[in-house]
């Protein structure tokens, strides 16, 4: 495909539109990002570092890592399983299943926290039962994990399903015909085929899991040093007018959030490079 001449030829319109687009992006998107890092280092590197070494900050970082370490693998296993079922087989009710998998995308994070309180909170359906047995879910780690899982539920599945549907199942069928077991086929054929999408999905899911605020805020109870994850720690510090501390923690979260974006950009550059190479031959 050749890139045609721009079809809009009004003199001066292209620079005008370009300037407008850059202005919108700059003011709306780039400026807030710069503000995070600017304010984090407003009082120098040492203040930045010491605010991250505080015990509450350290506890928040550990808790955030723990929550992500539980939720992300579970969502990854689910993502692979659901993509295998949906992409490799034809069955009735598939589109309904796809809609249900997408459901958490269109639910408010606060509602994603609320539903767990309704089940396991003090006056929830299982509240009394849990209280009798001294099991804590809400205002404790299990609640944080459940809320995080619900919010980040579709990410891996959404990355894998379209890719695996595109790839079809000819390669797997060939391996099976040649006598490979189902597990070997998955390990040696499917997994290598989907590894970049899986990695990207996991990174995306991880970034969301670590950055989740609304859902986690509802089930956390904000017990300092115990149930405050890093985003909640940002809120606590911000409300205490400790702006450098808040933005220092925020800059860590922002870097985490940007990591999948960076990977995607690199992969796309590499990928388009390969495409250009194949076109030359």
């Amino acid at each position: 495909m050749s890139v045609g001449a721009p079809t809009v030829r009004l003199p001066g319109i292209a620079p005008l539109l370009l300037t407008a687009a850059v202005a919108v992006m700059g003011g709306l998107i780039i400026l807030p990002l710069l503000a995070v890092f600017h304010d984090a280092f407003a009082k120098g590197l040492s203040v930045f570092l010491s605010s991250l070494k505080e015990p509450d900050a350290q506890a928040a970082i550990r808790l955030t890592l723990l929550v992500a370490a539980i939720s992300v693998p579970l969502n990854a296993v689910f993502g692979v399983a659901s993509a295998w079922a949906i992409a490799k087989f034809e069955f009735k009710g598939k589109s309904l299943l796809l809609t249900l998998i997408d459901l958490p995308f269109s639910i408010s994070p606060v509602v994603s926290g609320l539903v767990w309180v309704l089940l396991f909170g003090a006056q929830g359906y299982f509240g009394e039962w849990l209280l009798d047995r001294d099991i804590k879910i809400i205002f404790a780690l299990p609640g944080l994990v459940l809320a995080t899982i619900l919010v980040t539920f579709p990410f891996v599945a959404r990355e894998l399903i379209p890719l695996m549907q595109d790839q079809g199942s000819d390669e797997e069928a060939a391996a099976l015909t040649l006598g490979a077991s189902g597990f070997t086929t998955f390990w040696k054929i499917t997994l290598p085929n989907i590894r970049w999408a899986l990695l990207y999905g996991v990174l995306l899911c991880n970034a969301r899991a670590m950055g989740e605020f609304g859902a986690v805020s509802v089930v956390s109870g904000h017990i300092r040093g115990e149930t405050t994850t890093l985003p909640l720690h940002v809120e606590v510090l911000y409300n205490d007018y400790d702006f450098v501390g808040a933005f220092a923690a925020a800059s860590v979260l922002a870097s985490l959030g940007l990591s999948p974006l960076v990977l995607k950009t690199i992969l796309e550059w590499r990928h388009s490079g390969e495409l250009a190479a194949s076109r030359r031959h």
Binding site: L17, L18, M25, P109, A207, P231
Partner: peptide
């Protein structure tokens, strides 16, 4: 439709609001 220096960077930055944790976006704004 337009080819200009920095187009790819601008394209990547579009996803920023997806990527930035909401609390971070909140205090930055």
């Amino acid at each position: 439709r337009y080819e200009f220096p920095g187009r790819r960077l601008l394209d990547a930055i579009v996803d920023m609001p997806f990527a930035l944790p909401t609390a971070v976006a909140g205090i930055a704004l």
